[in-house]
């Protein structure tokens, strides 16, 4: 993904503001990256370079960590982040059907963002709400006992127009 000049400048500046809050040990790497993502919504390459320089490690070291952990995103998320739980209880109660419903309606795959950058879709391992399965977490709010109809209802409440277009699948 190509960043605009504006995005490069912003990510460098925001990262530089965050760095002095930490003493600069290698052990600070993950808390720093979490803070950067909290601020920017993702961890762009210029931010990784700033962090590497601050901690005295190579950018590749930072990239290894960022690509290892599920939490970190390399590209900006959508305005609304939809996380579909795929834990055991959710799976056995049709979690994959719910994930399919989101994919079908948003017309994106897991890990992608809609072209208008409104929605991003992710799967999460388990949010520990197994008694409410299947659940979808949208912007941190847990929605319990989701059905394909409820997916439509939620999208409608977000102001998205749903065209029923059977036959394409």
């Amino acid at each position: 993904m190509e960043l605009t000049d504006q995005e490069i400048t912003t990510s460098r500046e925001e990262t530089k503001k965050i760095l002095p809050q930490y003493p600069g040990r290698r052990g600070d790497l993950i808390p720093i990256l979490q803070k950067v993502q909290e601020k920017l919504g993702y961890v762009p390459a210029p931010a990784m370079e700033e962090v590497a320089a601050y901690l005295g490690i190579t950018p590749m070291d930072v990239y290894s960590v960022v690509t290892f952990y599920n939490q970190f995103r390399l590209s900006p998320p959508g305005k609304r982040q939809i996380n579909v739980c795929m834990g055991t209880a959710c799976h056995m109660r049709g979690g994959n059907i719910i994930l399919d419903s989101w994919k079908r309606r948003l017309k994106i795959d897991v890990g992608q963002v809609t072209p208008d950058r409104e929605f991003s879709l992710e799967r999460v391992a388990c949010v520990g709400c197994c008694t409410m399965a299947p659940v979808t977490v949208i912007d941190g709010e847990v929605h319990p006992k989701v059905t394909p109809t409820r997916v439509d209802g939620l999208l409608f409440s977000f102001g998205m127009k749903i065209e029923k277009e059977g036959g394409k699948h």
Binding site: M86, G87, T88, A89, H91, A125, C126, G128, C129, C130
Partner: peptide, 8 residues
């Protein structure tokens, strides 16, 4: 780091 799916 309770990561087991189905455990809470």
């Amino acid at each position: 780091d309770e990561g087991d799916p189905g455990a809470f």
